[in-house]
Simulated assay, not measured.
Amino acid sequence: MVNSRALLFTTLCSLLILSTFIDSTQSASCCLWYTRRRLHCHRLLGYTIQTINMSCDIKAVIFHNGNNFVCADPASSYTQKLMKCVDDKKKMIQHMMKEEIPKTSASS
C-alpha cells in the first residue's frame, strides 16, 4: 500500500508541475475559430483565456490537451463546465499534496 501511495503522490505531483508549466506558457498563435468536438475533462491539463487584441479576433478558452491546444467558446455552458472541472482537478491535486507532505516527512 505504501508503494501505491508513493506512486499516486508522484503522479499527482508530476501532473501539477506539468499543468503549472503549461498554464504559464501561451500558444504561438491565437484561436481563429472554436472546436465543434466534445472534449473530455479527464484528458485536459489546463486552460488559458484568450482576449481580443491586435492579432486575435475572438475571445476563446484554450484548453491544453497534452501537446495540443483546443479553442472553445467562452460563452458556452459546456466550456464553463470544462473550466470548472479542470479547476476542481487542480484543487484536488493541491489538497492531496498538502495532506501527503506531512505523512511522507513523518515517515522519514
Rank of each mutant, 00 (worst) to 15 (best):
N65I: 07
W33S: 08
S27L: 02
K59E: 15
K81R: 12
S14F: 06
T48Q: 01
L16Q: 02
M83E: 01
L82H: 03
Q26K: 11
M1F: 13
E100N: 08
E99D: 14
Y34T: 03
N65V: 10
R5Q: 14
S76F: 01
S107E: 13
Q26M: 05
T79Q: 07
T79S: 09
E99P: 02
W33V: 04
A72H: 11
Y34R: 04
F63V: 09
V2M: 12
S24V: 01
P74V: 03
D73F: 07
S76I: 02
I58A: 06
D57V: 02
M97P: 02
K89T: 09
T51I: 08
V86C: 05
I101C: 11
N53H: 00
L18T: 07
I101M: 13
V70T: 15
L82C: 06
C41V: 03
R36A: 05
M96P: 01
H95G: 06
K91N: 13
A6M: 14
G66H: 11
S24K: 09
Q50H: 04
E99M: 15
T10S: 13
T104L: 15
M97W: 10
V2C: 11
L45A: 06
Q94Y: 12
S4W: 10
I49C: 00
K91L: 15
L15E: 06
T25W: 03
D23H: 07
V70M: 14
A72Q: 09
F9E: 06
M83C: 00
S4V: 12
K98H: 13
N67R: 15
E100R: 09
E99T: 14
T51H: 12
Q80G: 01
K84L: 05
H64P: 08
I58D: 06
T11R: 06
C85N: 05
L15V: 01
K84D: 04
H40P: 02
T104Y: 14
T104C: 11
T11G: 03
A28W: 08
S55E: 06
P74D: 00
T10G: 08
S108M: 14
S76L: 04
Q80T: 08
K103P: 04
L44F: 05
H95T: 13
F9V: 08
L16P: 00
T10K: 09
L45Q: 07
E99S: 15
V70A: 12
G46N: 10
L45G: 06
D88C: 06
I58L: 08
M97R: 10
S14L: 07
T48K: 00
T35Q: 12
H40M: 12
N65M: 13
N3I: 15
V61Y: 05
A28C: 07
C31K: 00
S77N: 09
E100A: 15
S55T: 07
I58E: 06
M92C: 10
K81N: 10
C13Q: 01
S29H: 08
P74W: 03
L39N: 07
S14Q: 01
A106S: 14
C85R: 02
V70C: 10
T20M: 03
L16H: 00
Q26H: 10
T11L: 10
N53V: 02
K89V: 07
R5E: 14
T25M: 05
